[in-house]
Design a protein around this nucleic acid. Structure first.
Lengths: 206, 206
DNA sequence: ATAATTACTGTATATTTATACATTGTAATT
DNA sequence: AATTACAATGTATAAATATACAGTAATTAT
């Protein structure tokens, strides 16, 4: 991105701070009043900022400015790239998995690239996926889907229990493969709930 | 909070989804058009939602609605629990590590509990930490600090290079321990830049 | 049963907001 | 020396937006 002039930088900073505080963009007039200049001075500065890629402008939309690049490394919460999804807890046997009362909390993550669809998260229990570098208490970001390709890591419903395994189907009957040789492949019937698209780990947890 | 009626719920949901998508609130007219009703029907529903505490309305501010309680477990971006931090890229030898032009991007993560201080992120290169289940391309969330306890995973500056290792100091001279037995402990001088407090992994990356 | 809340229609209006046009001056490039 | 990007001013205007008033009807609570 082209470097911003001092004036452009302070304008972008003000807009950024304003949005952070109000959760909606300032109007041209408000920005102008803040800097005690004419509205059109701001219009031109904003136009320059849009051109340089620092701001996004929604034409003819009131209060439609938004920050693209973070001017002074400020926050950009609420970015389109973020997504908030439910974290499902331990699912009791027999209960529907996606019941609202199974929601343990919500986590917000960077939306994985090139992916859409409904997403959710589960907490890993046990050590059956350690060879894939997935450990107890890791939170997995899952995209809901009922099929998977060979070798993909899936969340599956198995005997009324939710489990994370590697999905295998090399020409034969599909099965679930743990990533830890102290566990055997699982060949009982199961249902795929989704595939793993992301992972978060918190080293400050107990 | 008082329970929402069905109509109020679906209105709140629409507003929530709209804001999530556009990052600015819809106008009364837009909401009305979506549900194919009169503007004033929406005005009253919104007024009820404000009264019940589900929405916040900024009087006479265009597109000034915002979601307070998350109606159907929808988004809560911009939460105080989130933090946006710079992601530092490959640091060329000799260059200062935290120079702005080393910033590769920004990531937003749940703020680790009980932790404050300045934070940043780095991308993992190589396989020296695989025994700790940290692999290439994982992004580590680091809290800046210059000391560490025995056994903590640290980011350290070593010969003008940034590296991730286990910090060791059992009574003797501190050293850096890789978590992969194909690498030897490092006993050259180093400087701790921070300790690992979190990790994110994206399975959809190339 | 009666009042209050909810959900709606239609029309109108004041205010807010973005945007257009005409002009000036300065600093940075070419 | 000429051109372009930048930073302003002032005046207008169109479009977007919130809001006010008057009234109907169904549902829910007292």
């Amino acid at each position: 991105m082209k470097k911003l002039t001092k004036n452009q930088q302070r304008t972008a900073d003000f807009i950024s701070r304003y949005i952070k505080e109000h959760l909606y963009s300032p109007t041209y007039k408000e920005i102008a009043e803040h800097f005690k200049v004419n509205v059109n001075a701001i219009q031109q500065t904003v136009a320059a900022l849009v051109k340089k890629g620092a701001l996004e402008r929604n034409e003819r939309i009131a209060r439609g400015l938004r920050v693209k690049q973070v001017p002074n490394a400020e926050l950009l919460h609420g970015s389109v790239k973020m997504i908030t999804i439910p974290l499902y807890g331990n699912v009791a046997a027999g209960e529907p998995v996606f019941a609202d009362n199974n929601i343990e909390g919500y986590i917000t993550v960077d939306k994985p690239r090139r992916l859409s669809g409904e997403m959710f998260a589960v907490t890993v229990r046990g050590d059956s996926m350690t060879d894939k570098k997935i450990i107890e208490r890791d939170k997995l970001i899952i995209r809901k889907q009922s099929t998977a390709n060979d070798g993909e890591i899936v969340v599956a419903l198995l005997d009324d229990e939710v489990t994370v395994k590697i999905f295998k189907k090399n020409n034969g009957k599909p099965y679930l493969q743990p990533a830890n040789n102290k566990y055997d492949p699982i060949r009982r019937p199961f249902k795929i709930l989704g595939i793993v698209v992301g992972l978060t780990r918190d080293y400050t947890e107990v």
